[in-house]
């Protein structure tokens, strides 16, 4: 009997990373901009996405969405009311979406006939940050009702985001939301990140957000 150290240097999420790299190539080849929306449950991802899908369709963009939840297809039904193709992914207890779930739910969709594909992740501020879905833009959402220090409490997620969206701005005043502090905290965790202040109820901030989407999509050509 002899002991031996075997160097492995293997990524634990290598399988997911490889699948995600394959997805990224597919998205790029098809010319579709893919965004991964992450936040706590209750931030308003679905309401924000409903409005985004509707506005984009009004402007003639071709959009689709995948939405992850542990159970129910409630969110898919809400999003489908926009007229966009939507598929629900039920993870049955798993706390995040992974690249394999995305791959298996894209079947039958012609990606090259889409301009934008939105992936609404499972509401969770921890686990989704580890799982690359091949997206170009990871969007972290935060609502005014959650507290300005959320980015400081969940730095691993906010630091991995490419854009941040503050939702429910119509409630900012009644909630005593300290806007400057929230912006400072987001910037402290992810310096230089683009931040959008929105309300799905009033439509505030949507023009800037939609302009950003168009820029990102142009940038990918």
């Amino acid at each position: 009997m002899t002991t031996r150290i075997v160097e492995l240097r293997k990524g634990i999420l290598k399988k997911n990373d490889e699948l995600a790299a394959g997805l990224r190539q597919r998205y790029t080849a098809a010319g579709v901009l893919v965004l991964n929306l992450v936040s706590s449950p209750g931030t308003g991802k679905t309401a924000f996405l409903e409005l985004t899908l509707r506005e984009l369709r009004t402007r003639g963009a071709r959009v689709a969405a995948l939405v992850g939840d542990l159970e129910t297809d409630n969110d898919a039904r809400r999003l489908a009311a926009s007229g966009a193709p939507v598929r629900q992914i039920n993870t049955h207890g798993i706390c995040h979406l992974d690249a394999d779930m995305i791959t298996s739910h894209l079947g039958g969709w012609q990606l090259d006939e889409l301009d934008y594909l939105f992936i609404e992740n499972v509401g969770n501020l921890v686990c989704p940050s580890s799982y690359d879905l091949g997206e170009k833009v990871r969007v972290a959402l935060l609502s005014v009702t959650e507290g300005e220090d959320k980015p400081l409490k969940y730095p691993t997620l906010f630091n991995s985001a490419d854009a941040a969206v503050i939702t429910k701005m119509d409630l900012a005043v009644p909630c005593g939301f300290d806007r400057d502090l929230a912006l400072k905290n987001i910037n402290e965790i992810r310096p230089g990140i683009r931040i959008f202040e929105t309300s799905a109820k009033t439509g505030a901030g949507m023009d800037t957000w939609l302009a950003y989407l168009a820029e990102e999509r142009e940038g990918r050509k």
């Binding site: 002991t3 075997v6 492995l8 630091n159 991995s160 230089g192």
Partner: peptide, 23 residues
């Protein structure tokens, strides 16, 4: 100054295993 260029911190890997070989 703010720093945005990450060089280490997202690793999640098996570095090595120690085994006892059976000859």
């Amino acid at each position: 100054e703010f720093v945005a260029d990450l060089r280490q911190g997202r690793e999640l890997e098996i570095e090595a295993i120690e085994i006892e070989e059976n000859h």
